[in-house]
Design a protein around this nucleic acid. Structure first.
Lengths: 137, 137
DNA sequence: TTTAATTACTACCCTAAGGTAGAATTAAAT
DNA sequence: ATTTAATTCTACCTTAGGGTAGTAATTAAA
């Protein structure tokens, strides 16, 4: 019961970008140093984030990354969805295909309650809020 | 954000065993048929459950499996622990090493709330309760 | 004693996640 | 023009989860 490393890293990378002076671009090297994420692995994630349009890259000397969509409009849920980490509405926690509101498994109701709470947290947490003053990143 | 297939299967296997007439043993073949879990994969799980002492096996013709510990004393949490699927207390949802009660990540408090709720559900759900009358398995 | 039905053991195979390596491309600075 | 600092592309490696195959061991029934 946990998020994938890639999701976790991605959220922290984007939050770190928010806190960088946005007059300049931030490079992969700098992010890798800040977050202690292996450089090559980080660039792989960055390329994916460029591909889906969360960020933009400028190549060549003095290049780097910057947000394309504002950090206040990218949510944790968006990231989890990108890496197939989000909690699907229909998903029974015990993996029972026929479990639904009519025919419930023993955990159905409690799981729904937790699931909604988590989904709400993921949806309401923007990258901007993750990066806000006083929060550990 | 999900449980491993092995954990899900295991919970359902044990619940299925509860609902079997316990005057007789239940065989891997029967469980595999009941739950549509591939026979060979199921026997692999069963051998592990024997190894850790949840169930007992009787080999040879007319053999099969039965509970060693009562189903009312095996919890979902026990199973998740066995397959490294449980939620650790210290674990930050964003994977931040230095995140703790003093220095929190943005999701810390909300995550703790959900985490406690889930841990409680896992701890309080016995195999017996999963198998109880009226529940989908 | 043989046979059939059962679990256990050993050794694989496949896929995806996580991670690494090297070279190609880009563009500013010199 | 050349150098340098950056991203991107392609290809690979390693590990763990999920799953399969074959065979040995066991034991009760026939």
């Amino acid at each position: 019961m946990h998020l994938s490393n890639t999701s976790k890293y991605t959220i922290r990378i984007l939050a770190n970008m928010v806190n960088h002076k946005d007059t300049t671009l931030i490079s992969a090297k700098e992010l890798s140093d800040n977050l202690k994420i292996p450089y090559k692995f980080l660039t792989k994630i960055m390329t994916e984030l460029v591909r889906v349009g969360f960020i933009e890259s400028i190549r060549g000397r003095e290049g780097g990354y910057k947000f394309l969509r504002p950090a206040s409009e990218i949510t944790v849920g968006d990231i989890l969805e990108l890496f197939n980490d989000s909690i699907k509405d229909e998903e029974c926690i015990l993996g029972i295909d026929s479990c639904n509101a009519k025919q419930k498994c023993a955990l159905h109701d409690k799981w729904i309650k937790s699931k909604i709470q988590l989904q709400k947290m993921f949806k309401e947490s923007t990258i901007e809020s993750i990066a806000a003053e006083g929060n550990k990143i």
